[in-house]
Structure formats: C-alpha cells, structure tokens
Computed example of a mutant assay.
Amino acid sequence: MNGQTVLITGSTDGLGRHLAVRLGAAGARVLVHGRDADRAERVRSEIRAAGGPDPVVLVADLASLREVDRLADEVARHLDRLDVLVNNAGIGFGRPGSGRELSADGVELRFAVNYLAGYRLTRLLLPLLRAAPGSRIVNVASAGQYPVDFADPMLERAYDGVTAYRRAKLAQVMFTFDLAEELGGSPVVNTLHPATYMATTMVRESGTEPCSTVAEGGDATLRLITGPASELTGRYYNGVREERAHDQAYDPDARRRLRELSDRLVAAAHARG
C-alpha cells in the first residue's frame, strides 16, 4: 500500500477505524472521515503511532448532501488521484422502539446515510479514481437485504428500522452492480457483507449480541482492497465467499429505477439549496 491513497468513510469507529489503522500501518496515506473532529484526530494519532504516513482528517455529516459535496471538494483539494474508496459509513437499525427519522434533505435517514451519500460521493470522486491505475471501490453492505418498494421508497406508510436498514443495504449492492457495468472494470467495484454482527457500536445499540470480531470483517474487506478478489468487478461477497445477492440486485429495470430515484433526490436537495 506504500504510496497509495485511501478514503474510508466512517473511519472513526468500528470496521472503518480498524481498516484505517491497518492500511495506514501498511504504508497507505489514509483520509480519515468522521462526523466528530476529536475522534478523527485520535485515529490520525493512532495511525502515526503505527508508523503510517500522516493521515488527512476530513469532517462531514453524511446525512446532508451538501456536506457530501463539500467532502468531495475537500478530497479533490488534497489529492490528484484516489486509489481506494471504501464506502463504509452507516447507521444501524436504531435503538429498539425508535421511529422514522429524516436526513437534512428530507430523505429517510438510513437510505440517506447508508446508500445515497455513498452514491453521490462515489460519482463525485470518479475523476480522481479514474486517474489512479487499478483503483478500487468497496461498498460495505450487508447480508440483510430487503427489496426497494418504488411506490414507497422512503417507508412513509409502514416504517421499521430493520427494513429501512436492509433496503438501504440492498440499494448499495444494486448500485455496485450498476456502476461496475457502467465502468467496465476500471475502477473495480465490489460490495460485501464483512461479517455478521461484529462487535461495533451499531450492533450494541440495536441490543444485539455480537458474534463476530471487527478483525474478521477487516480481513474480508481488505481482500477486496489488496487481495486476489480486488481484480474482479461487480461481485457481492459474504465474508470472503462470493455469493448471490437478493434477486432485485440483478434486475436491470429495478437498478434503473433506483438510479433515477437517486438522481431525483440529489437534484431536489440541491434545488432546496
């Protein structure tokens, strides 16, 4: 990883933090992203203590598309190329009993953070990724996938946090397949379920007992960044095994409808200013 640049969204906790430190220690210049500057600075110090190049700290709330745009501008100010983008930032089911929430742009919050922010950020950063030979995009999704209902994509009629989370994660997978087909192998684009119920803040918040370690998820994700699977594109992995995703991910019409919905939501956010 010496000389390579890596942006990991949500790299101040859990899997993102684990990846940031491991990749930094391996010689990558890591762009540490989070919502909290103090926590991001702690990760930066951890990477420096491990002997890695001095990281760049980027603070942005991905629940706002304006902040996503600003994040992309910040990345472009620091870099003329980007070797790896890991769309890892996300929020879980929510606390038991919690209700439906909206982003700053009026989008259902889990769809906004877990999917739409990564969709927008990836598209904005494509010029930097194309400038780096062999660049890779890794979308951290989930084995928990639920089909997007295009008649009610924002879950206005019957909200449930688990359903909202799983819909957003399937949307990530659908975007991965769509983008891989569009790009034709450069950059390489893959997605994975890193591990089941890792010992993270997100899992604990939901009241679920962890059954995997963050290191297990890290190993699986690093395989898509640096291992043999990083040469393949448009694949979904459960851990280190390639598997079939939900059927909707393979439906070209559903992927087209998701792309059109995403572009409408982005355009509406910008129209509101």
Rank of each mutant, 00 (worst) to 15 (best):
N2T: 14
Q4E: 09
T5E: 01
T5W: 04
V6S: 06
V6K: 03
T9Q: 01
T12Y: 03
G14C: 08
G16K: 05
R22G: 10
L23N: 06
G24W: 05
R29K: 03
V30K: 02
H33M: 12
R35E: 04
A40Q: 05
A40W: 06
A40F: 10
S45D: 15
E46Q: 14
E46P: 05
E46A: 15
G52E: 02
V56F: 04
V56L: 14
V56C: 04
V57Q: 04
A63T: 07
A63W: 00
A63Y: 01
L71G: 09
D83C: 13
N87V: 11
N88Y: 05
G90N: 08
I91K: 07
R95Y: 05
R95I: 06
P96T: 11
G99H: 05
E101H: 06
E108D: 13
L109G: 02
L109A: 09
R110Q: 15
Y115H: 15
L116K: 05
A117T: 00
R120L: 15
L121D: 09
R123Y: 12
L125Q: 01
L125R: 01
L125M: 05
L128Y: 01
I137T: 04
I137H: 02
I137K: 01
P147C: 13
D149R: 04
D152M: 10
R157K: 14
A158I: 06
D160P: 03
G161W: 01
T163W: 03
Y165D: 08
A168Q: 10
L170V: 11
A171R: 06
A171W: 02
F175L: 12
E181Y: 01
S186A: 12
N190T: 06
L192Y: 09
T196W: 04
M202Y: 00
R204T: 12
E205Q: 12
G207P: 10
G207H: 03
C211P: 01
G217A: 13
D219V: 15
A220N: 13
T221Y: 01
L224Q: 07
I225L: 12
P228C: 00
G234F: 09
Y236E: 07
Y237Q: 08
G239S: 02
R244M: 04
H246K: 04
D253T: 14
A254F: 06
L261R: 03
L265H: 06
R272M: 14
R272G: 15
